[in-house]
């Protein structure tokens, strides 16, 4: 039975998604600079827990989100009565989204967040 599976697989598309490219490029930075398209990652289902979106204007500065965040992502900025997110630490649990009384936090389906610098623009939300 397993032999049948193997033969079947020979004619089927591979189960793995060739993300981000089919073969490892000779030089990764040259590939990235060339701007050639990458194979997209597999789609995410609805209500996926991805990168946070912060609606600064809605935030009332109640500090509730910081009370439930397991990873100390959220720093309160008292002068402005707003918060700052250091996403490099975020565990994507979504508790801040759930508790925020002003609906100022949302979760997107973006998940490609790797970066060399944990304080890069992409990873600090204000």
């Amino acid at each position: 039975m397993i032999l049948a599976q193997i033969i079947e697989q020979l004619f089927k598309k591979p189960a793995t998604n060739k993300f981000p490219v089919k073969y490892m490029p000779k030089s990764v930075s040259a590939f990235l600079k060339s701007g050639r398209p990458i194979v997209p990652p597999v789609p995410t289902p609805p209500r996926f827990r991805g990168k946070l979106i912060y609606h600064r204007e809605k935030c009332v500065g109640c500090e509730q989100c910081g009370r439930v965040c397991p990873a100390n992502v959220i720093q309160f900025v008292p002068q402005e009565k707003k918060v700052r997110f250091y996403l490099a630490r975020c565990t994507f649990c979504g508790q801040c989204t759930d508790i925020c009384p002003a609906d100022a936090i949302e979760m997107s389906n973006e998940f490609l967040l790797a970066d060399y610098n944990k304080y890069s623009k992409n990873l600090v939300l204000e």
């Binding site: 009370r67 439930v68 965040c69 397991p70 565990t91 649990c93 508790q95």
Partner: peptide, 10 residues
């Protein structure tokens, strides 16, 4: 060092 809601996902 955390409240249980924080510890949950830890």
């Amino acid at each position: 060092k955390r409240n249980p809601l924080q510890t949950l996902y830890l």
